[in-house]
């Protein structure tokens, strides 16, 4: 390989050229980078669909004895460009209360989002992932449970004396406060 001749040292009056090269170089990179970043950040402005009350079950389907029963929540699911009506978007445990009302608990564990199970033998809820346990009203049972708060209760309404409607939402996992996502 033939040796390259060394370049002459830049003269001081070349400052303008150096600055211009740096600025132009930066501009050529900033525009594609910024346009890419904008699309990359787009999910930050996406809000979850729903939040309105949805019909979950008939009152007749909820056991009279107060035992919780799990029901899927059907709603319109929006997945980016797809909009699908009447598909399961989550699930709730419904329980009849002595005052005739219905309690609804989101099945997602407030710790990390696994679905809790109702354990008939122990009459409580248990999370199969990190062993949090909850009483029937959603309270944390075992103080060692990793869950930072009780199961998330949801607003319910019994319409016409027969239909249970639930304002279904999910809440941020892993924090003490119940913050809707």
């Amino acid at each position: 390989m033939e040796p390259h001749p060394p370049p002459p040292a830049p003269a001081r009056r070349n400052f303008l050229a150096q600055a211009a090269a740096a600025v132009i170089g930066a501009i050529t990179l900033v525009i594609p980078a910024a346009s890419g970043l904008l699309v990359l950040l787009d999910p930050l402005r996406r809000k979850p669909a729903g939040g309105g009350a949805v019909f979950v079950a008939n009152l007749a389907a909820v056991p009279a004895g107060g035992e919780p029963r799990k029901f899927p929540v059907l709603a319109t699911r929006v997945d980016a460009w797809n909009r699908t009506p009447d598909v399961p978007v989550g699930a709730v445990y419904l329980q009849r209360l002595p005052d005739g009302g219905v309690r609804a608990l989101n099945v997602a564990c407030p710790h990390a989002g696994c679905f809790v199970d109702y354990k008939a033998a122990r009459d409580n809820f248990h999370c199969p992932c990190h062993n949090s346990s909850f009483a029937l009203d959603g309270r944390v049972l075992d103080p060692k449970s990793p869950s930072p708060r009780p199961l998330d209760s949801l607003e319910t309404e019994v319409r016409g004396g027969t239909e249970v409607w639930v304002r279904f939402r999910n809440f941020r996992a892993g924090v003490h406060e119940k913050i809707p996502v």
């Binding site: 950040l41 999910p43 979850p48 997945d79 980016a80 996992a173």
Partner: peptide, 21 residues
């Protein structure tokens, strides 16, 4: 649960408020 930026970070990684496309 990452301090300060956790929820935004999660939303960026998940690509929205819910898991999907």
């Amino acid at each position: 649960i990452t301090p300060f930026v956790g929820p935004e970070l999660q939303q960026l990684v998940v690509g929205g408020a819910d898991y999907g496309h």
